[in-house]
Amino acid sequence: MKNSFDEKILEEANDWINANQKVALATVIQTWGSSPRQVGSRMIVNEKGDFSGSVSGGCVESAVVRECIDLIKKNKPYKKIEFKVSNESAWEVGLACGGEIAVYLEQIIEK
């Protein structure tokens, strides 16, 4: 899947930054099996945990929000995380659909 010129998630990130919020982007970079959102799907998260967009059908968003807040707090530039179907790993959330996804988190570095 390619990305759409019309999707406004990055524009929204820009608005948040202009409102002096710290913003991290979370992008689906790989999927295996039946994952709900395609590669390139994206959500944005600020330091308070507000978010917009999606990386799954609601299965892993809460974990992504937590990871993004952590990224911003520790002032790390980027991080890659993977979600699998089971909850055996450190993740308490998983993909109920049986798919796996890799999500790349990156912080928008200050102006």
């Binding site: 010129f5 990055l10 820009n14 930054i17 970079i29 530039p77 790349y104 990156e106 928008i108 570095i109």
Partner: peptide, 30 residues
Amino acid sequence: MKYTQLKEIIKKKSSKTEFAIVTNLKNGLS
């Protein structure tokens, strides 16, 4: 990603120029 890059992406999107964002996942450079 640098903020200046985000701005450039938004500009390219609004002018409907075809482009790609390439990111090295090992070092975060894009």
